[in-house]
Nucleic acid binder design. Structure first.
Lengths: 204, 204
DNA sequence: AGAAAACACTAACGACTGTTAGCCATAACT
DNA sequence: AGTTATGGCTAACAGTCGTTAGTGTTTTCT
């Protein structure tokens, strides 16, 4: 009964098949990225949504609820993908490549969300902050386990797995500082260039 | 005459051979990193310095002056190092290794400053913002030129130079998200692990 | 048609922001 | 010893912050 109620709500408000809450979060994600969570004000956000600041609270509960929604949406999406890769029967190198490609695509297709999840999680209130950091730590641990498994099996070079995870994740999250200056580069080219470097390195 | 005046000033105020302005900037750097520039208040900062908020303005001109000082200090230091490497007569691979090692050491030794320069430059007011971005663009361009030079000479693998710069710089700046969780790792180990990956890649 | 729910509005609260004015003590220089 | 500059302090300004209360209007359901 409750879920039916919610569904009806969504239909009522929809423009382009999206709830007003979704519109708010979408606009907020751009704003949070541009100005940072702390510097983006609810009045700013309201203006972009086309409404007065107070009216936002008919759809959301607080400013930080928006941040929570974004951060955990991204975290869950990555976690789900990781589980699929873990369950698959590919070689270690293929697994890593799949994960890298997934990250790059998420970065390109859901840029605002991923950026915020990467850079603004500090402003999450407890207990969400601890929750988020636990998820992140777990994610990285499992990634490192895949790499370590690969080195013990001799499938990939013997390298410190934590360092490898650090390099890979950081490199991808750094795409943000790039995409403005090199719009000409297509997504596919960027993806294959990055995969090439991250797999094969610089040395000839 | 003016410079003598300034020198005397520095001696007067010094605790541990540092001006009070330097103390303020040092404390501010930790605060800006922990809370972000926007969320860190002058009253917060004043408390850490052991003084009332208004008293800070006897030593600095504004909050953003602190940010400017930090950002350009870091930028200049990297730029100076780059010029030295460019002028040297090493192989491309050695040049890149030197730059990578320098970045890692700066990250470990001047963590707060480098972090802020990496993450909080958005809050620089004009015209400093444009200035900073120009310097950064120039730095990356020259780094890419070194790599490109190496590929045409056949000294390193044929890889998109811009992608390589992106991967290298991002990987290093990602050390921040690591150092808390892996304090056990020594600086030397981290450095050699990262260099190994960034030079040799993952593939066996 | 009438009841109810959804949602936008204005006004305002209390807390907090960076910063300035002005005052007073101490320390340095002549 | 007397003048001056340094650098603390309190108080305050003008503005912004997230958020709530209360009201009115529109839309949906019965």
């Amino acid at each position: 009964m409750f879920s039916i109620f919610v569904t009806v709500m969504a239909k009522i408000q929809g423009k382009r098949n999206s709830t007003k809450k979704e519109v708010i979060i979408e606009k907020a994600s751009r704003l949070f990225r541009e100005k940072g969570f702390g510097a983006a004000s609810m009045r700013d956000l309201a203006e972009h949504v086309g409404v007065e600041a107070a009216s936002l609270y008919n759809h959301i509960q607080s400013k930080s609820e928006i941040l929570q929604t974004i951060c955990f949406k991204v975290a869950n999406e990555f976690m789900t993908n990781l589980e699929a890769v873990e369950a698959s029967n590919q070689s270690t190198l293929k697994k890593m490549e799949a994960i890298i490609r997934r990250h790059i695509r998420m970065m390109l297709e859901q840029y605002e969300y991923v950026y915020i999840s990467d850079h603004e999680w500090r402003h999450l209130p407890e207990p969400y902050l601890s929750n988020f950091l636990n998820q992140r730590r777990s994610y990285r641990k499992r990634l490192a386990d895949i790499i370590e498994d690969g080195t013990t099996k001799g499938e990939i070079k013997a390298i410190d797995p934590y360092t490898a995870v650090l390099v890979i994740l950081s490199a991808i999250s750094g795409i943000d500082s790039w995409q403005r200056s090199r719009k000409s580069t297509t997504a596919e080219a960027l993806e294959s260039n990055m995969v090439k470097y991250l797999i094969e390195g610089l040395k000839k």
